[in-house]
Structures are given as structure tokens and as C-alpha cells.
């Protein structure tokens, strides 16, 4: 393997990208917009539709609704959500997978949407903070954040709420240490950690 220098996105080599078939099923997905699952059985005779460069329309399933959006291959999921679909709960802060402010769920797992390409997200279930609850109909974790004042400026809060949701799905009755580990991929500048652990523990209790 001499692809490390040329890696583009998750597990995609430049060679695989150019060929569009063969080694990477995800590479096929990247080129064609076709869903990766089962693509290993792709017909060798199938000629992928080349999308790049420029914008192409893809479909993203966001908070249960399919939305069409024109993206470039280099457009991140975060930029597709924020700039093209006006879904702005996920924030751009570090823009390199450090701070977690852009966290969304992709097929139920927390993902830094600043470092996932929009094309990679096609055919997958994307859940943003807006999909968890609304101001009028709060999810228990959101209510718990309010109860424990686990927010100040609030810019990091959507990321923490999404990360907490993923954490509680994995550990319905977490310990304090599990909560701290689960939220260790998110950063807050105002200093609102004090209420967060209690908020997650309260939401866990409420959900049990």
C-alpha cells in the first residue's frame, strides 16, 4: 500500500478514486453518489457517473427527511448542512476534528461533520441537533442541559447535546467517568463543564 499520502476521506486512495471501481467501495460511493453498502457486488461493467469537478446534486437524509443539495466533491457535510441547507445547529469552530462543535449523528454514531465529505454521507441517516428536539418539544437531554445550566454562550452546546445523545445510546446508565470520556471529544470555552456531567446523568435517569 503506498496510498497514505494520497488518502482522501475515509479509506479512499487516490488510485481508487481515479479508477472509481475496484479497491474501495467507498471510492465508488464518492464518485457516483451510490450508497456504499453492497457496492462490493458492483457490476464490473457498470460505468460510474463522474461528478467532479463542480457541483452535483445529491440527496441527503437529514432528520428523517430527504433533501436534495448541490455540492462539490470537496464540500464537507458541515458546509452542506450550514451553507446550503441552512441547518445551522452544528457549528464550525476548529474545522479540523478537534472541538466537536460540528458533531452530528451518522447512522447513529457521532461524527465530526467538518471532516466528513457531504458525498460520503449520501444514503446514510444524518441526525443534527435540530432532529433531537425543538424549543417547544425538548428532548430529555436538552431539558437536562437547561436544568443544570450546562451552557453559557451556547456555541458548543449543540455539539455536546448530540455527543451526549450518542453516549446515552451506547451507555444508557453511564458512570461519571463514562460521561466524561464520552464528552471528551468536545470543547467548551465559556467553562460550562460543571453542569454537563450532572445533566447527562439526569437525562439517563429520566430515560430509564
Amino acid at each position: 500500500m503506498k496510498v497514505s499520502r494520497d488518502r482522501m476521506g475515509a479509506g479512499i486512495s487516490r488510485r481508487g478514486f481515479l479508477k472509481g471501481v475496484g479497491a474501495g467501495t467507498a471510492a465508488a460511493g464518492l464518485l457516483t453518489g451510490a450508497p456504499p453498502p453492497g457496492a462490493a457486488a458492483l457490476d464490473a461493467a457498470h460505468t460510474p457517473k463522474v461528478l467532479a469537478p463542480g457541483e452535483s446534486e445529491i440527496s441527503l437524509k437529514i432528520n428523517g427527511a430527504v433533501q436534495k443539495v448541490a455540492v462539490e466533491p470537496r464540500t464537507t457535510l458541515l458546509d452542506a448542512l450550514r451553507n446550503r441547507l441552512d441547518i445551522t445547529g452544528a457549528k464550525k469552530v476548529c474545522d479540523r476534528a478537534t472541538c466537536g462543535a460540528c458533531t452530528v449523528l451518522v447512522d447513529g454514531s457521532p461524527v465530526y461533520s467538518c471532516t466528513m465529505l457531504a458525498l460520503e454521507a449520501e444514503g446514510r441517516e444524518i441526525t443534527t441537533v435540530e432532529g433531537l428536539g425543538t424549543p417547544e418539544n425538548l428532548a430529555p437531554i436538552q431539558q437536562a442541559f437547561i436544568n443544570h445550566d450546562a451552557q453559557q454562550c451556547g456555541f458548543c452546546t449543540p455539539g455536546f447535546v448530540v455527543a451526549s445523545t450518542a453516549l446515552l445510546q451506547k451507555f444508557p446508565n453511564p458512570t461519571r467517568e463514562q460521561v466524561q470520556a464520552g464528552l471528551g471529544g468536545n470543547l467548551c470555552r465559556c467553562g460550562t463543564y460543571a453542569g454537563m456531567v450532572d445533566a447527562v446523568l439526569e437525562a439517563a435517569k429520566g430515560g430509564a
Binding site: I87, T88, G89, A90, T128, V129, E130, L132, G133, T134, P135, E136, L138, Q142, F145, I146, D149, Q151, G154, T157, P158, V161
Partner: peptide
């Protein structure tokens, strides 16, 4: 403003 902040509505 807790509800709008923790739902991404702010």
C-alpha cells in the same frame, strides 16, 4: 434562552 441554544435554534 436555554431552549433555543440547546436545540440549535439560536
Amino acid at each position: 434562552d436555554g431552549p433555543v441554544k440547546c436545540t440549535g435554534a439560536a
